[in-house]
């Protein structure tokens, strides 16, 4: 899905002093000219490190993001929704696969990334540490979280690292179907029976704070990312993406007669910017550092899946007694 609100590490010097200055200059010129960097090209160590971190976080977000919606596949009401949700969550797993592959081109094996995920060493998008309490939550997630993801990913697909950009182009195409599915789902609830309406309103109230958190801390307090922006690793500021999201989706939410739980939310016609209650960044930090409603559960599920599947992976690695060509 998703990969909003990446956490970048503060770098001490922007880049290592030992980097070859001539190579660096050429590298930056290529990026400024809109060229893509490919796996075998020279790149600063800091660029590689931050990209691995970002793509890996994104991949983790896809696989962990499959969990809150995945638990609703077995409860989806009716064939149409059941089939659509199965396909959607399958897509998300596919996104994880694409992204792990993209990150692997930078030198970190998938096994190591997954290990860092289940030991809590690397992060994933904060939104997936919140529960999908009812069916309506899955509708809100598929519409608005995927919408946020698209804004983030379309921006990133114009970045500088070739394999990541190409993966994102395909991912964005699929995300746009998720968004349509989610929107259709929300429309049915919002225009349905009073009970359905209440369900989707409640879900929106629950999900609004995580949605506002989705793009990451406000520019005022987030780590300075000028170098990453120049290197086209980070493509848009958190606040700019949040503004874009609000611009595109708040009118659509209001159109459905739903209430957004922020009395301050309105567009300032002079500045053209949305004004809103500042999200609770302390909570954001608390949740990303492990203390959200579902962090433990999500990682436990992932860890259990890894442990339970170990014998299968081993059996693929060591066909000990007899090599067999797969049949047919």
């Amino acid at each position: 899905m998703y990969g909003g609100g990446y956490i970048f590490e503060e770098s001490k010097n922007g880049h290592s002093e030992e980097e070859d200055q001539i190579k660096l200059q050429k590298f930056e010129e290529r990026i400024a000219a809109g060229e893509k960097i490919e796996p075998s090209d020279w790149m600063p160590a800091e660029y590689r490190k931050q990209l691995i971190r970002m793509i890996e976080q994104h991949a983790h977000s896809e696989i962990i993001g499959a969990l809150p919606e995945g638990t609703w596949i077995t409860r989806a009401p009716g064939f149409r929704r059941k089939l659509a949700l199965m396909a959607k969550v399958q897509d998300e797993v596919g996104h994880a696969q694409l992204l792990y592959s993209a990150a692997e081109t930078l030198g970190k094996p998938r096994e190591q990334m997954i290990n860092d995920l289940i030991t809590g060493k690397s992060k994933y998008s904060n939104v997936f540490n919140y529960p999908a309490v009812t069916w309506a939550d899955t509708a809100v997630i598929a519409w608005l979280i995927d919408a946020g993801a698209i804004i983030n990913q379309v921006a990133n697909s114009k970045g500088s690292y070739g394999p990541y950009c190409r993966a994102l182009e395909r991912i964005c195409l699929e995300e746009s179907f998720h968004l349509k599915y989610g929107h259709d789902n929300v429309v049915f609830l919002a225009t349905g029976t009073s009970q359905q309406r209440q369900m989707v309103q409640d879900a929106l109230i629950r999900w609004w704070p995580p949605i506002m958190h989705f793009f990451g801390p406000s520019d005022k307090i987030s780590v300075h990312t000028e170098t990453l922006m120049r290197w086209k690793v980070k493509m848009a500021s958190n606040d700019d993406m949040r503004q874009k999201f609000l611009d595109m989706y708040v009118p659509k939410i209001w159109e459905l007669g739903l209430t957004i739980p922020d009395p301050k939310l309105k567009k300032n016609n002079e500045t053209g910017k949305w004004e809103y209650t500042e999200p609770d960044w302390e909570e954001f930090k608390r949740v990303i550092n492990g203390d959200g409603p579902c962090n433990k559960e999500r990682l436990a599920v992932r860890r259990r899946a890894e442990e339970k599947g170990e014998w299968v992976r081993n059996a693929l690695l060591r066909p000990s007694e007899k090599y067999t060509v797969p049949l047919s």
Binding site: L83, V301, R313
Partner: peptide
């Protein structure tokens, strides 16, 4: 479909989901 996102290998996860979708 209960296996979605929990299969031992990502590639196999996708395959198993496709077959579950076919069945439904």
């Amino acid at each position: 479909s209960e296996w979605t996102a929990l299969v031992p290998i990502l590639e196999e996860d996708i395959a198993f989901s496709s077959m579950a979708q076919d069945k439904i």
